[in-house]
Each structure stands twice: as C-alpha cells, then as structure tokens.
Computed example of a mutant assay.
Amino acid sequence: MLKKVINIVVLVPLGIVLVLLSVANRQTVTFALNPFNTADRVLSVSAPFFVFLFLAVILGLVLGAAATWFAQGKYRRRARNEASEALKWHREAEKQRSQAEKLAAQASLPSPQN
C-alpha cells in the first residue's frame, strides 16, 4: 500500500511535468551527430523536441534497469545455488525417511517361530 502511494506521489507529478514540457516544446529541432558539419543530413534527425525528451527518459530507464539487473546478479546466483542445495537436501531427507519407514516396517514384522 505504501509503495502505491509513493509511486503515485512520484509518478503523477513526473508525468504532469513531462506532458507540460511536451506541450511547451513542440518545435522541430535537429539532432546532429556530426560535430564538424551540422548541416550534414546523413547523421542528423529532425523531430519535435519532446520526442528527444521522451527518448532520453526511456533510455535512462532502460540503462538504470540494466545496471540494477547486473548489480543484483550475484544475489540471483546465490538464490539459485541455495535453492538447488535445498532441493538436494530435501531429496536426501525423503530418501532417509523412506529407508527409515522400511526399517520400521521390517522391525514390526513378527519373526518366524521354529
């Protein structure tokens, strides 16, 4: 519940700011990748400024998510290793339990009388 409230408090104002910036920056700008000749149309893209703004936000989200995913890799690996070890010990416990049941069943059988 608290996470929802925090998301609403952060994401709603952020969304409002992005919409206001988009409305205010509708003019076409040219994004040039050639620093020596900005008039070169081969390495440039023209679009409304808000398109570049949204692309920058999306790129930041993707890069942040990738950095977080890579940073948490050691924890995911540890969780996988511990899960496989727990499964191994569970199988061993089941094996021991079945052997104990067999021994108990053999011990409870009456021995043959001569």
Rank of each mutant, 00 (worst) to 15 (best):
L33Y: 14
L33E: 12
N34Q: 14
P35N: 04
P35D: 02
F36G: 15
F36I: 11
N37P: 00
T38Q: 14
T38N: 13
A39S: 14
A39N: 15
A39I: 13
D40M: 09
R41V: 11
R41N: 12
R41K: 14
L43H: 15
S44C: 12
V45P: 06
V45D: 09
V45Q: 14
S46C: 12
S46Y: 10
S46I: 08
A47P: 00
A47I: 03
P48S: 04
P48R: 00
P48L: 01
F49Y: 08
F50R: 12
F50G: 13
V51A: 11
V51N: 03
V51Y: 02
V51T: 11
V51F: 07
V51D: 02
V51L: 13
V51P: 00
F52I: 06
F52P: 00
L53D: 02
L53Y: 04
F54M: 14
F54Q: 03
L55Y: 10
L55W: 10
L55D: 13
L55E: 12
A56M: 13
V57W: 04
I58V: 14
I58M: 11
L59I: 14
L59Q: 09
G60P: 02
G60C: 07
G60F: 15
G60E: 03
L61W: 08
L61Y: 11
L61I: 13
V62Q: 03
V62Y: 01
L63I: 11
L63Q: 08
G64R: 00
G64N: 04
A65T: 15
A67P: 01
A67R: 05
A67H: 03
T68G: 00
W69E: 01
W69G: 00
W69I: 01
W69K: 01
F70V: 01
Q72L: 09
Q72I: 04
Q72N: 10
Q72S: 10
Q72Y: 09
G73A: 06
G73F: 00
K74I: 04
K74Q: 05
R76S: 06
R76A: 07
R77W: 01
R77P: 01
R77Q: 06
R77E: 05
R78A: 06
R78Q: 05
R78M: 03
A79Y: 09
R80C: 08
R80V: 09
R80H: 08
N81V: 04
N81W: 03
E82M: 15
E82S: 07
A83G: 10
S84Q: 11
S84A: 11
S84M: 11
E85F: 05
A86D: 07
A86R: 07
A86K: 08
L87V: 02
L87K: 10
L87Q: 12
K88Q: 06
W89H: 03
W89T: 00
W89E: 00
H90S: 08
H90P: 02
R91Y: 05
E92D: 04
E92L: 03
E92G: 01
A93V: 01
E94I: 04
E94V: 02
E94H: 09
E94P: 02
E94Y: 05
K95W: 13
K95E: 08
Q96F: 02
Q96V: 01
Q96K: 04
R97S: 09
R97C: 08
R97H: 10
S98W: 12
A100V: 07
A100E: 07
E101T: 13
E101D: 11
K102W: 11
K102D: 15
L103M: 08
L103C: 05
A104L: 09
A104C: 09
A104T: 06
A104V: 04
A105Y: 02
Q106E: 07
Q106Y: 06
Q106H: 04
